[in-house]
Every structure is written in C-alpha cells, then in structure tokens.
Design a protein around this nucleic acid. Sequence first.
RNA 1: GGGCGCUUAGCUCAGUUGGUUUAGAGCAUCUGCCUUACAAGCAGGGGGUCGACAGUUCGAAUCUGCCAGUGCCCACCA
Length: 877
Amino acid sequence: MNELASVYDPKAVEDKWYKYWEEHGLFSSKPDGREPYTVVIPPPNVTGVLHMGHMLNETIQDILVRRARMEGKNALWVPGTDHASIATEAKVVKRLAERGIHKTDLTREEFLKHAWDWTHEYGGIILKQLRKVGASCDWSRTAFTMDDIRSRSVIKVFVDLYNKGLIYRGVRMVNWDPAARTALSDEEVIYTEQHGKLYYLRYKIVGEDRYAVVATTRPETIMGDTAMCINPNDPKNQHLRGKHVIVPLVGREIPVIEDEYVDIEFGTGCLKVTPCHDVNDYMLGQKHNLESINIFNDDGTLSEAAGLYVGMDRMDVRVQIEKDLIAAGLMEKVEDYTNKVGMSERTKVPIEPKLSAQWFLKMTDLVKPALQAVLDGEIQFHPAKFVNTYRHWMTDTKDWCISRQLWWGHRIPAYYLPDGKVVVAEDIDAAVVKARELSGNNALTAADLRQDEDCLDTWFSSWLWPISLFDGINHPEGEELSYYYPTSDLVTGPDIIFFWVARMIIAGYEFMGKKPFSNVYFTGIVRDKLGRKMSKQLGNSPDPLELIEHYGADGVRMGLMLAAPAGNDILYDDALCEQGRNFNNKIWNSFRLVKGWEVSDSIEQPEHSRLAVAWFTAALNKALAEVKDLFAKFRLNDALMTIYRLFWEDFSAWYLEVVKPAYGTPIDRATRDATIGFFDTLLRLLHPFMPFITEELWQHIAERADGESIMVARIPEPAAVDERLIAAMAVAKDVVAGVRNVRKTKNIAPREALRLQVVGEFDNPLSAIITKLAVLDAIDIVETKDATAASFMIGTTEFAVPLGDSIDVEAELAKLEADLKYARGFLATVEKKLGNERFVANAPEAVVALERKKQADALSKIATLEQAIAALKGARF
RNA sequence: GGGCGCUUAGCUCAGUUGGUUUAGAGCAUCUGCCUUACAAGCAGGGGGUCGACAGUUCGAAUCUGCCAGUGCCCACCA
C-alpha cells in the first residue's frame, strides 16, 4: 500500500476532477420532475479578479448547492458577471488616458467599442478563477448584465415603470461625483469622518463699518453665495435684520434673510447660503426665492460663473482662498473641525451636491410588499439581525436616482421630440410611433428624435438578476422561470443589502408577483487576523489563488468555513488554511490505512469489531441528524465542525483504532465492508465542503463506472440512533483513557497486557472495546480492589489497575485525596441546594430528584474514595 | 443625534424555552512520545468568579434595569 505518499497532494487531483465533472455535465441542470434548488451568483464585476471576499462567498454558495444536489434536488447555480457601469467606465477611461486618448475626444460609439474590447479582454477571468475554487456552476448559462436578454429585460422594465407613472424625470439636487462626472444614488454616497477646518469669514455689513462673521467648512463656495441667513429668534444677530452684506473677495452684495432653520448655537449663528451647492441651502433658496449661481464645472473645477479662480480645482481653491482671505483681512479665525463628508463609493472623491435633471424611480409604493415579506418571514435573513437594518431603510425610502451620465451601461430608452417633449419606448421604431401620436405629426421620423444621452444605474439591471437569468421579464410564462423561480438561497454581503438585496425583493414582487428567493445568507467581511479590513495598501490581502496553490482548494475552503458563522466577520489567518490542509491529510491517511488492509473470508469478526461497527453506526447517524439540522439553520461552520470531529475523533481515533488488525494480519470481511461503508458516507457528508479530496477517495474505495461521481451520490437520511451505545462509548473512552494514564504515570509499556478491576457493578455493553483498546487481559468485577492498585474514578465507579509492589503509594494517595476534595466540594454545592427549603418546595420534582441522585452518588463516591485511601495507608507499611 | 447588535478560556466562537456534574468546542499553549495510516501525527495536562453593578427567582452565562467598552446602520447641522 505504500505506493501512496503519506502526504496528500491536492495539485495532483483538483484540476482532474473539475474537468471530469464538467465533461460529464454534472453542473448542468434542466427542469424536470425533481424539486428545484436554485442559487444565482452575486455577479462579480466583469473585469474583476477573485479576492478573499469572493472566495468566502462562492465557497458558501458551492456548499449549499452541492449539499442540495446530494439531497436529491435538481440543483442549479447560475453564474454571470456585472457590467459595473461606473467602475468599468473609470477603468476604460484610465486606460485610454494612458494611451493619450481622452474620453471627450471620442464619440459614444468609439468609446463603447473600447469598453467592449476591454470587457472581452478581461471579462471572465474571475469565472475561470471560480473553477479553481471548485464552484459547481452551470457554465452553459453564464450571463452578463449587458448581454442581449438582460439588456432587453432592463429596457422593458424601464418602459413599463414609466408607463405606470413610477419613473419620472426631474430637476433635483443630486449627489454628483466630479471624478466620474455623473450623478449617484444616495446609497452610493459613503459618509466618512474627515479632519478639516472651520473657517470664520468676515462679511462686511453694507452701510456700516462692521462685519458679520460666518462659520463654514467650505470657503471655496462663497462665489456662489446669494444670501446670508440668521435665525429670527437669535438675540445676538438682531442688528443684522434687513441688512445687506458684502461677500468677501467677491465684493457682491447679498441680502440677510431670516429662517428658523438656522442653528443659533452653531458658529456665530450666521449661515452663508449657496443654493447651488448644498442641499439645505437649496431648500432655503427655494423658500426665499433666492438667485442661484453654479460655480462648479462637472469635474469639480471652478466655472466662469464663479468669477474668481476659474479653472482651478475646488480643493486647490480651498487652500488658495484661505491665504487670500487672510491676506485681505477677511478671515476672523480658523479652527480644527471634524465633520462627515459624503464620498463617492466608487471613486472615493467628495460628493458635490448638484442641481441637475435626472431620472427617478418612485419608491414609496414599491417597497411596501417587499418590506412586508421580510417582516412576515416569507423571506428569511440569516442572521436575523439584518431584518432591523432592512426595515429601517425600507420604511423611509427616497426616490431612486437611476440615471448616470455615463456611456457604459443601458442607455435610457427616452426619446426627445424636436419640441422637447419626450416619449419612452423599447426601441426607435416604437418611439417614432409614439412620437407621431403625441405630436400629431405623422411626418416625424427616427432622424427627428434624439435619444437621452444617459445610461442607467448598474443596480437597475442587477435588481432583475433572479428574474432576468431565466428571461422572466420577456417571457413571464416560460418553463425555465416557472421551474427555477423563486430561487432558493441568496448568499451575499450585508454591505449591499440596500443596493441589491432590497431592490431584488422589490423587483420580485413588482414584476413577478413573487419573492425572488426564500433565504438570504449574509456573509461577514474577511479581515486580517488583527481585525483590519483587507486592502492592497496594507498588503494584508492574500491572493486566493496563491492560497489554493499552497493549501489546496479544499484546505482553503475549509479554513474559511471553520471561522465563518453567518454574518460574523472572519479574521483570516493562514493557520486556518493549515488546519484545513491538515484535515485533508488526516482523511488521506485514514484512507491509506483502510486501503492497505488485506481481507480474509476465513476470519470471524471479533467481538470488539462487531461492537465498534454498532457504535459507530449510531455515532454516524447522530451526526447525520445534527448536520442536517445545522444546514437548515444555515450554521455551516458548526456543521463542518461536527463532521470534522466525527471523522477525526470518532472515526479515526476511536473506531479505526478498535477495528484495525495487528500489523501483517488480515481483517475479516464484515468489518472491512462496514468500514468502507462508513468511509463512503463520511465522504458524502464532507463533499459539499471539500469536493476534490472526497471525489478522489470516493473513486478509490470502490469500482466506479465512467461518469459516476460523489457529486450526485446521495447523503443518507439519518436513521434512528441507539443512544445507549453512544452513552456506553463515552464511558468506555473514559475507562480507556484512565488505563492509559496509569500506564503513563507508572511507565508501563503500551503493549503490556494488564488486568482491570472494577469495584461493584459494571455492565458496559462495549467492554470488549475497552479490553481491546486498553490492552487488558481481563476486566474483573471485585468487591474490594487490591490495596496496591492505581485507581481512578469514572462517575461513581472505581476502577483499579493492580500494580503489586511497583505502586507509588504517595503519588496514588495524593491523587485520591485530590479526587476526594473535588467530590466533597461538589457534594457541598448539591447539599446547599437541597438544604434550601424553598428550593425543595418550589422546584419541579424532577429537578429535586436529580439533585438527590447527585447527592447519593457523591456520597457513595466519597465513601469509595475514603475506603481506598484507608486501604492505601494500610499498605504503606 | 437616532436605531440595532455584540462583550463567555490566549484567539475564534457554541451554550436552544433560566435547573442533566463546580460552563463547552476548535485552534493555540504546556508535557511525554519519530508506537509500521498519519510528527500536517499520537497520548495526556493546564487555562474562564460567563464586561461592571443592582434586581427578579428556590435557582441566572441565560430574564429586567442601569453603566462601561466595542461594532454596524441611518440622519441635511453649516
């Protein structure tokens, strides 16, 4: 048997089996009579590469899908990628810039060609990487959010929502990303604490030789000031009522207005009002009918309208204007100040509030069924704590800004007539028809219509993902859709609960009238072992593919899963992968042992083997039931730990040690067959977590036809468990450990057979196992043990190994005294309870009875120990 | 400023409706072993007054209150 190395080599088998599975079509699914189990992948960015977050997320999905498949369900995992409008466009723009090409030099068509080239070049890398992980996706279904079916779905949905009156175009204050030069939704703005400054600026009061002082964090916006605002109830600023002030440096005269919005306590109680560049100022401008001056270009530089600093970047202006204000004597003071600044989630630059015409989706009614479904538990979140987060967001949802000033994405299907009116239609031909109806001008042609330049938010396509993957928008009655939808489980990070999860639920109810999935498993964030987020800058983010290279895919999968309860961040450490790799090795070596056995039909099954088979059958079934229950609760890490311990402790350390024959001797047929059967089941149980090694060994332990695979083998349903054997084995293990301890402390060789005395009664059905593992000649039931014996207690029973003259009386005494002390302490706690009249009177009878039993047991144990101590003392001389 | 969650062994976490030993697991650590499946291993051991305080109860890691620490989400205070 020693042609097999003692170390398992994942590299030798992983690619082989992945190819085997793929070639035999084991990943693919078609509708049939079985119960469906469907997972859709959270589509990674088409040009992205696999990172640790993906590794965790995809591993979890694969575990769920493989388990479902082995439960006999028709399991389908649909892969795909997302066009990631902003991120991808930014990358393309950057690459073009490296070649000296600016986006503005290109037509939309030329730019899109570059973008598609980029997509074809880098697109799908991540899908190849997923194969290394072992992902059992149905690759024939690979989708892209901008492929034909998904694009038509998006456009159709836009038109439908527009026709329902839920989509509208309007001029609003939106979040503007000056780097990407596009509007963003509220969810794409991340507020972060920034250490900045609070500037106190002097505004000269017209007609007086005094100044009003305004505190602001953004002095560069003063060119857009069109008023100063005070609170009418502010006693310290009463002198400003009805006055005008001069904007510093600019020299423009602006009125002082009054509004209770102003916080009297903040700064000086004077607020500068810049309606174009602040949401609240915009509100004030509307209310008080103020002039608006837009001082910024789309890229965050100062516009002609600013008059000063034209063409400079806003951040540079902030630095320069501070100097200029000081020089002009118009800066009262500057303080350090910490406030929250909205940053673009994608480009990480500060958001600029900007007034612009955008498309919006009304959310108020759409969210209602989606909220209810989660509150009612029709859709379950794991862990459930995220229901709170979800409810919070869903109860006050603002309209969704869905237009982006980008080219890479789905172009908005709105067409403007020459007179500025708009029609929304699925294509240009339909638009012409509608335009003619609208205008009454039948001479209108496509050439007269101008399509909206904007494209849609990426999430406006991914919110349809569970539907559009089955072409459900275009074919709501399709066979695929009705079979696979609603999908079963969704696995994703809580960071996109609003971006994606909530919106998919909304879309599900709005477009299909049904939930998109039944369960959402929220993963945690993968951090380093110090709890820091993984980042390129810190260099603490390992490349999953390198880890796979080093530890094997199974090892990495297991390492991540051991540390990843749903919703908990996982602190990644290479030690986790080592544990995974070590477990692989353990399995491998157990296999080597079993494979090396020579079988003989002429040997009878020994009693200890017969008992071991019976016991392990019970242990295995108990674990099967536990794992099944844990899967139902999405406690995958606990499920894995249960299997880990079953394999390592129960199977390898105990079961195999009982049944393995002495070196060079054959094993009986019955035991060997039972062992192979156990091994088979263990591999199946483990396969969802560690697909490669389990396939490799499963193929080895029996003859398999071509195309057979553990992937489609069934995990057995748990059978009834003989708890008596489980309990008996627990005692047996303790007895064996007790004897081993005696050997160790007395320096008795492992193979030297001993006798074991049991004082009083002992009827363990597994005593043959004890005899075998503890290497005993016999177990003697005795009234009184030898005075010179090393003894130990298990429960209330005393065991003793007679040692004759070789006993170390003092050491033995010390041990017994320690046991006695413990037993007395324990008795004291029990008797304290029983001595409490109110306990005896009020506690349930069963609880009191249990305490009485404990008391009796403790008393008998103490008596036994005292006797043993007395006997030893007698033997001392 | 609101809302939610967490705090149990050195680390990561279990602990179901309060009562199956004086609270468990994995990893780490310590001791002894290269015992023909496996040193990526085997056999043992140590380690926690369950964040603090108060309360309810015959009985609290578990329920209540308050406090401290920590994390997340939301919010227009310049």
